[in-house]
């Protein structure tokens, strides 16, 4: 299965793996503590501080490593939530059809008529700013996209003979959703998973950059950009490092998702 991996997907896999490793083992690989003040403000990179220090004199590399953990955890949790929630609703709408489908689809249309970021800001103006809120808000808003995709896929599957056969032998709605539709809808959904994860990372980073996401002293990449952005005008590039990390993560996941998409849509060599 791993014999014919194109070079771009290989790079993507290695980088994504490295990011995941960093996130999981953050406390063991970071040289200093997350909120520990160890030097002067905005020291340049040296053998002691590989990436220099930040706006309060904390080690930037350590904050980046802990930031990877927070960013990837929240984005992954939000993606998992949006997938579970969105796909179950989407399948249900496709299987039930008629009025239930109409009500759910029109509600999703309505939710999508307001730009995601704007609606998130509205909700975050009254909700307490903590990780659970962020995960739920991002997950619910993103599940609209998953809903549309999974409903579209499930509508096609729902008219297949084997689903008809299951209905005739008297299976309930839950059986049809989880045993008939879900296994057959999995591969297009998995390809979408990567893209939704990237979107969640970018979305979370934007919120934190605006000061409305993860709150200090907790670090996430968007927040580190915000903390260090004032240094840019003095020619201190500290804010560019987390921004670069976000881009690198997004691109590497994109490369992997692209490869999976090509594999699953390719009838000859796919599925392996």
């Amino acid at each position: 299965m791993f014999r014919r991996i194109p070079i771009s997907a290989m790079i993507g896999l290695v980088l994504t793996g490295a990011f995941a490793f960093t996130a999981i083992f953050a406390p063991w690989i970071s040289p200093y503590g997350m909120a520990e003040i160890v030097g002067d403000v905005w020291e340049p990179s040296s053998s002691q501080f590989w990436l220099g220090t930040d706006n309060l004199g904390r080690d930037l590399l350590s904050r980046m490593i802990y930031g990877a953990r927070v960013t990837i955890f929240i984005a992954a949790a939000a993606t998992a939530f949006s997938f579970t929630f969105g796909s179950i609703l989407g399948f249900t709408a496709a299987v039930l059809g008629h009025r239930a489908d109409q009500i759910m689809s029109r509600s999703v249309d309505l939710l999508m008529s307001i730009p995601t970021l704007i609606f998130a800001l509205v909700v975050l103006s009254v909700l307490p700013a903590n990780m659970l809120t962020l995960i739920l808000v991002m997950g619910v808003l993103d599940s609209t996209r998953v809903y549309r995709l999974s409903r579209a896929v499930a509508v096609d599957i729902n008219v297949m003979d084997y689903v008809e056969a299951a209905r005739l032998r008297g299976e309930g709605t839950r059986w049809i959703i989880f045993r008939e539709i879900l296994p057959n809808a999995l591969s297009p959904l998995v390809a979408e998973l990567g893209l939704r994860f990237i979107f969640a990372v970018l979305f979370l980073s934007s919120l934190s950059f605006l000061g409305l996401g993860v709150q200090p002293p907790e670090a996430d990449w968007g927040g580190i950009v915000k903390e260090n952005k004032d240094g840019i005008i003095f020619g201190i590039p500290a804010a560019l490092i987390p921004a670069f990390a976000i881009s690198a993560l997004a691109i590497s996941v994109n490369l992997v998702a692209d490869w999976i998409l090509n594999r699953t849509s390719d009838l000859k060599g796919g599925r392996g």
Binding site: I198, F209, V225, K229, I232, G235, L240, A250
Partner: peptide, 23 residues
């Protein structure tokens, strides 16, 4: 195109500020 889709606005923004405006 593929690369720019993955870049957050603030990365492009601060990159431009750093090089075009400050340097």
């Amino acid at each position: 195109t593929l690369a720019t889709i993955s870049l957050p606005e603030f990365f492009i923004g601060y990159l431009l500020i750093y090089f075009v405006s400050v340097k």
